[in-house]
């Protein structure tokens, strides 16, 4: 797998989330994703970025434009050094929330993307990696 292009962005304020949406949209357009996939990717990015900000006390996003020979892909890696998630399975369930949201964030995002990985250590932080491949 080849990384064609990459970029990083901070997620520290609610204004940063607007930049995240704009930059992710730009990457997705460049990779020639259709309008529905673009919308799903940007929405997924927005959901995870909000988690990074609200629960992870801020962090960073790394965007990677990928090629595996036949397909193009967009991989988004969100990293924070927040409190971590104790029970990941539970956090992925629709309706689960530890904050003031509706608890659709993680479970809903998983449905919008092709690949979804989450790694978390209590008191060290959380990394969420989501990927979408061209059809």
């Amino acid at each position: 797998m080849e990384v064609l292009k990459s970029d990083s962005l901070p997620i520290r304020t609610s204004e940063d989330m607007v930049s995240v949406r704009t930059s992710v949209r730009k990457f997705a357009t460049e990779l020639r994703f259709g309008i529905v996939d673009q919308t799903k990717i940007v929405t997924a990015a927005s959901e995870i970025a909000r988690n990074t900000l609200d629960y992870g006390r801020g962090g960073d996003l790394r965007m990677e434009a990928l090629s595996n020979g036949t397909k193009r892909g967009l991989r988004l890696i969100f990293t924070d050094r927040g409190p971590g998630i104790r029970d990941i399975e539970r956090a992925l369930t629709d309706g689960f929330t530890s904050g003031n949201g509706m608890g659709l964030g993680l479970g809903g995002t998983r449905r919008l993307m092709d690949e979804f990985e989450i790694a978390s250590k209590v008191n060290e932080g959380t990394t969420v990696t989501i990927t979408k491949w061209s059809r």
Partner: peptide
């Protein structure tokens, strides 16, 4: 489409 898949 996205909202419904998201569960909203």
């Amino acid at each position: 489409i996205t909202l419904v898949e998201l569960g909203m």
